[in-house]
Design a protein around this nucleic acid. Structure first.
Lengths: 351, 351
DNA sequence: AGGTACTGTGGGAGCGCTCCCACCAGTGAT
DNA sequence: ATCACTGGTGGGAGCGCTCCCACAGTACCT
């Protein structure tokens, strides 16, 4: 039975204790070195680091998690089926930003889909077990119970796209109001005067803000508001087509359209074609998101770009702050828990 | 200082011990119930389950991991940059299969990209810390050091697409040999006689197997081998174009082409067009993968489908077996550690 | 009556860390 | 010399589990 001695050198990973013995110091000191505490003399630190290298010591995460009551992991929760996640570049861009930001830290990122009821139950269980130190929430609907659950479990969370102007969670958003303004100002500067707007889903806060930007840009330029130039859409292609048709019926003389998303613009384009209007000659078209669709549309679509990757980065920053603030010590700073990033207009030939 | 009592009912999660007290049993018994041991009487089990429900007990994963030396997590390692992951449906299909299989278990799935050197170093650290019970490896190149690292750390792993016929790791693969045969047999049954093959990268085992399938199908049908009808490609579009051009030069009378991937077929199609050959009238074309490209090509491309989702499922099955086998107890069964799934020919108008 | 063999159960030991208190110099003020 | 401090250090206690040994109880042989 040779398998007896297996605990010795080979299989068993070295522990803090072994490193301490090797370096001729106490357990506490090794722990301090590992965790970068400044209260260690340079000589001791060097000795410990040498022992760590010789032994190939790697801290046991489970033991650390148990003793310190933290996991060093955060979850990116996507309340959508995986299919949508892969279909929409929004998510992959976001993941890219989040990934880049988190790779500067010791934290680990978990990707969790919560599209189906089953997955949501699993997630609830998962959160109840406190298996992450914090949560990143993307694409949350206004009536989602998830934020409440997180609050109740006292798990730090950051949301992308606040649910309302009274959002309680720390949030990162792009400047939807400014984006709306940019689109309209661009069209105005191109000589357009009868500018219509196809909105996004009205229960989405960002969509509301884009409408406000649209309105203010027009009135600031001295144009009287014409509510008949606004038609509700729902971010879908079909919704865009329908809204455009309605607008053409109601205000046949319109000379420009600002659509609340690129997909919506694609639908609008179709309706404009069917009505025999040329883009951009008869009607200029501006979308929102600067997605792949915008680049591949015929003609290529002018669009408002949101800095999604940077938003992902910002979410991590906010969340890490939030986590640090909740730990014992911490001045409990009530600073800026909202982050709003500027949008950018990307002009193409549709306007 | 009211924050004193915070340890009491509210903030602090209940522990095994508290559940035991509540149910009037010992700690060990509660543990047995939680872990589904059969050696508990029905009455006791019911009492414990009631206590668990009343207290809202959720096991502490860190403590369990520490005591039992397992994490209940497995990693899906993608040795590619995230960009490719999102671009290729192969990965999302795989993830879907893996996700479906794992949701039947208590295991957690981690998605880890290891495209850059930096990410690979992180991964090595991560594995050294034994933060997962097992690893799923997809799309591994022949000279990748990762499998060796895993072996050295004694971490169970399963690979998709063996690196050679002597693959040591448990593996899941589709029947590349059979797929090659299917393609050729389909073309033969369509009356084609001069069938060319554009291969994949020759250092990829699956590509070799497809060539063998191609050869055997031809010789079984009594056709003499013509090595000049085989041209090396590299799975890319440009490679396909180039190979097709070479084939047309060498064997202008060919009447069919079997390409080792849909992308390759797309390149071949281009070269055929340029040479004025009509598809399928002059030359029939068959691809491999049944990807979105195949469906959207003009004309739609006949292709060999690999059951990628099922492969993901199979990988989980193999890995869980592997993990179970390494635990104390376990009969250390040396059974089937390879899994080969059948391919399916999807006929479309290109042949 | 005394074995023998189970089933079900309680609880000690220990997993590898972090936290924190005690303690030991050394330093400068008194 | 005495009394603070302060930077540096060792090690006990304890995080919440699992594992396993010990033992009570019952049942079924000899």
């Amino acid at each position: 039975m040779a398998s007896h001695g297996a605990r010795g050198r080979s299989g068993g990973r070295p522990t803090l204790e072994e490193v301490a013995a090797r370096a001729g110091v106490g357990r506490g000191t090794v722990s301090r070195v590992i965790n970068g505490s400044p209260r260690v003399s340079d000589a001791t630190r060097a000795a410990v680091e040498a022992a760590v290298a010789e032994l190939g010591y790697v801290p046991n995460t489970a033991a650390r998690a148990l003793a310190a009551n933290r996991t060093d992991a955060i979850a990116l929760v996507v309340p959508e089926p995986e299919t949508r996640f892969f279909a929409e570049p929004y998510f992959s861009d976001m993941l890219k930003g989040v990934g880049a930001a988190i790779s500067d830290t010791e934290m680990q990122l978990l990707l969790i889909f919560a599209g189906s009821d089953r997955e949501r139950r699993r997630l609830a269980q998962y959160l109840a077990a406190h298996r992450v130190d914090g949560v990143l929430l993307v694409s949350v609907h206004a009536d989602d119970p998830l934020p409440d659950l997180l609050a109740q479990l006292e798990i730090p969370a950051v949301i992308s796209g606040p649910r309302s102007s009274a959002e309680t969670l720390p949030s990162v958003d792009s400047d939807n109001y400014g984006g709306g303004r940019q689109a309209v100002e661009h069209l105005l500067s191109g000589g357009r005067r009868r500018i219509a707007h196809i909105t996004g889903r009205l229960d989405v806060y960002g969509a509301q803000r884009r409408i406000e930007g649209y309105r203010d840009a027009l009135s600031d330029a001295g144009h009287e508001a014409d509510e008949a130039l606004i038609e509700a859409g729902d971010f879908t292609e079909e919704g865009g087509r329908r809204a455009m048709a309605a607008l053409l019926e109601r205000r046949p003389t319109l000379d420009a359209v600002f659509a609340a998303s690129d997909v919506t613009a694609a639908g609008a384009r179709q309706a404009l074609r069917e009505a025999g209007r040329r883009i951009p000659d008869d009607v200029a078209l501006v979308g929102y998101d600067d997605s792949a669709i915008a680049r591949h549309m015929d003609p290529p679509l002018t669009s408002v770009r949101q800095p999604i990757e940077e938003m992902g980065h910002g979410m991590i920053d906010l969340l890490l702050t939030e986590i640090a603030d909740r730990r014992p010590s911490a001045s409990r700073g009530l600073e800026r828990r909202q982050m709003v990033l500027a949008t950018e207009l990307v002009p193409r030939s549709s306007s």
